[in-house]
Amino acid sequence: MNIFRFVGDMSHLASFFLLLAKLIYTKSSTGVSLKTQALYLTVFVCRYLDLLVAFVSWYNELMKIFFIAASAYIVYVVATSTRNSNASDTYRVEFLVIPALVLACFVNETHWSKGGWSLNVMEILWAFSIYLEAVAVLPQLKMLHQLEDTTNITMHYMASLGIYRAFYLLNWVYRLYYEGYWHPIAVVAGIVQTLLYADFFILYYQSVLLRLPS
């Protein structure tokens, strides 16, 4: 594992702790999009089905289990939070889920001649999870743009997700150059996903960094 991948993973891990800290210490899920969190849970469950059939490393196994468990817990907390009206969580997620599923059915890494039926369904779900992750942040972005008063911790949560994406891009450049490793589906979707965060970082700069005492 190269340093870019590791920094990316740690930033991703940090994003979970930032969000959990926000939910637990402020006892409020205001400003957190339930839709985005439910999409992330869907992403992790669909992508990490390989936990059942393939072992890569303890690092991968534990991270995957943590990502599924933490996102399930976050969805539970936000969904049951009475203080959150969710009035501004208005993104139409069917416009994300359905195209991602259709695209995954046509553009995926299945090898029908080689794999069994269940393994190929897993490949379709893997591609679906990649496409869905690329756009899953959109409901949260829409909320951030609508809400005047977003807590800094929610913004730091988003920033750590953005850093995770950026370092994964560096990781892929590194792996392509030194290992010849390259999954076009993941790379193209990853570039799209990272570009979506560019919009967030402009907001982050304006609303968080410019407010810091100089």
Partner: peptide, 10 residues
């Protein structure tokens, strides 16, 4: 994995 290379990323 079915793919040419194992998916070892998260």
């Amino acid at each position: 994995a079915v793919a040419e290379e194992a998916k070892d990323e998260l």
